[in-house]
Structures are given as C-alpha cells and as structure tokens.
Design a protein around this nucleic acid. Structure first.
Lengths: 121, 121
DNA sequence: GTAAGTAGTTACCTTAAGGTAATTAGATTT
DNA sequence: AAATCTAATTACCTTAAGGTAACTACTTAC
C-alpha cells in the first residue's frame, strides 16, 4: 500500500505556526481577559482591573501585567496623584489584537447561549 | 477626594466574560494549534497531526484530542482500513471558531514579521 | 525475520502556573 | 486613632500541565 504523506501548502503551515506563536504569547488563564478588559474600557487602574476580572489574585494580576508590558502589548503609566495611581492601557500593538479579542468575545457569548439552551431542554 | 467606581456597561461585561469562557475552553499550549491544523487541512489522521504539530508528544496529543472531542469541537472517526486509521475533523461547532482561528493565525504571522524586522535593524 | 507504520497507553518525573494569606507604606477619610 | 484607600510584594503551598521514554498489538513492506 502506498504511503501518501500529507504535505501542507506553505500558507497553511504559516497560519498554523501563527496560531501557535499567538497562543504562546497569550498563554495562561488571564492574559486574554485582561487585554479584553483594556480593549473594551480603554484604561484601567490596578484595583479596578482586579475588581472587574473576577477571581484573579493581585499577585497573579501583577505578574500578568508585567508579562504583557514586557511584550509591548500594554503600557503602564504612574499618575502623580495622592495616593499614587497606576493606569494600564493597550499599546497600538496591543490594539492590533482587536480581531482576536473581538472574535473570542463573540464566540464566548454564543457558546454560553448555546449551553444555556441545551440545559433548558 | 471622590471615589468614582468604574462601572462597565453590560455589553462590555458580557464580552469580557465571553473571552474568558473561550480561553477556558481552549486552554493549554496545543488546542488552538490543533484546531488550526484541522481548520486548514480539513482532516487529519493521528500520526499526521503528530508530524505536523512540531514538538507535541503522542500522549499529549491524545489527551488534547479527547478534550476537544468531549467539548464537541472535533469528531473522531475510525476507518475500517488495515491497519486501522483514525481521522479527526472539526465539527460544525468547531468550525464556528473560524474567526478566532483566522484572526490568531493572521496576527501571529504579522507578529513574526515584526520581530524579524526588529532583529535585522 | 526484521524494520517500520498504524494509534495510541502507561509509568514516571519536573516545572511552572496559579492560589492563599499576610504584609508594606504612605495618604486620606471618618 | 482606626479604618480604608493606593499598588503592589513576599512567602508558602498545591495542582495540573506537560515532557520522556518505553511499550502494546496488529499489519505490511523489504
């Protein structure tokens, strides 16, 4: 019997690699959610983020924000107020994730709806 | 000083929750990549998947495929060949992730390009 | 008969992700 | 004077994710 090895066109291979790269950069339970919050609200202070993202511990939030900042997806700004406040927002680079963020939000909403419908049957 | 608590419109809260739900369902290093491969190639047998997704161990691939099948995102079909082969493909439900998959692939490609450009400077 | 291909499974191990709870330190409110 | 706000940090712990390597059982090609 012949072995027909599956060979993918270069464009497919690139897309699959692209997905992997994106996933690696946005790894973990929280990064996409944080980016989503900043995307939909524009700016957030640390405490407001921690209040609006249900269940995240300050230690974890702090670490995720550092990761995202290191990858130039968000910008951290210390405001000269009393007491000091810190604002986080998407960089233009972070904003370029808009399609990913939007698609995930929409799919999740539809997903939740479909689960609820099944349960009510 | 006044405390102006940030309050998000319901639509934002839903979108953020949607992102979180989606992320939770597609957690881990490999699920999105597997879905991407099936999206771009249509069907894949176990060994072909394991060859095309660089670095994934058979144990891990097997587990991820089970997870995805349990969540009705992919379909597993045993073919009556000698030796037996098994095919994996997206369900219609899995295909509804197309925008997420596509957006992540495109962003990843652009990301890789921008990294290469910076390095060459 | 031996190598290689099919689709996994099993046992074992390591690392990192993430959670808990307490603490810091200055400023402001009550 | 005590509580609460700001943005975190620190120490400690647990779990799960993921990797390694070997193995199964069957078939076919060489």
């Amino acid at each position: 019997m012949k072995k027909e090895k599956v060979v993918l066109p270069e464009a497919c291979r690139q897309s699959i690699q692209g997905i992997k790269d994106t996933q690696d950069l946005l790894s973990g339970k929280w990064k996409m959610t944080i980016l989503g919050a900043l995307y939909y609200n524009g700016k957030f202070r640390f405490m407001d983020l921690s209040r609006h993202i249900q269940g995240i511990a300050p230690k974890v939030l702090s670490k995720e924000l550092k990761d995202l900042e290191m990858n130039h997806l968000i910008k951290r700004t210390v405001k000269d107020t009393m007491p000091i406040t810190v604002e986080y927002e998407l960089t233009p680079y972070g904003k370029s994730l808009n399609k990913v963020i939007y698609a995930m939000g929409e799919w999740g909403i539809a997903y939740r709806k479909s689960v609820l419908e099944k349960e009510s049957k």
